[in-house]
């Protein structure tokens, strides 16, 4: 199996998904900026979407994976809307969107 076959087959897509997921996790964990964190989450969702679509294409004949991906996009949009609203309000109240500064409640 050539590299090209590998890369355009299921494994290639999965590889991309995995990398996206990893990057997403790293972003969630290390970005100070809340928007960055939000983007990390979106990356994770996209990784899952890629998985769903590729599995749907390569493993089963059904399209339910692709439908799932559509739902993910919709829900991610809703989530992002709410998230941005929350971040916005936080910024209004505190004038920073640094995720680490939101530590009023602890211990």
């Amino acid at each position: 199996m050539s590299f090209l076959d590998w890369a355009t087959g299921l494994h290639g897509y999965l590889f991309v998904g995995t990398i996206l997921a990893t990057l997403g996790i790293i972003a969630v964990v290390y970005r100070r900026n809340s928007i960055g964190v939000l983007l990390g989450i979106e990356l994770l969702l996209n990784a899952a979407s890629i998985n769903f679509i590729s599995f749907s294409k390569f493993r089963t004949a059904a399209i339910d994976g692709q439908i799932f991906a559509l739902f993910i996009i919709i829900i991610a949009a809703a989530e992002a809307a709410v998230a941005l609203a929350i971040i916005l309000r936080l910024y209004r109240l505190r004038e920073t969107i640094d995720a680490g500064e939101a530590n009023l409640m602890r211990n």
Binding site: V29, V37, M105
Partner: peptide, 17 residues
């Protein structure tokens, strides 16, 4: 145990992972 509860959500994420 309460030392872990730093109030910083990203650290929570790390701990969960």
């Amino acid at each position: 145990l309460r030392r872990f509860q730093t109030g910083r959500v990203q650290q929570y994420v790390i701990l969960s992972l």
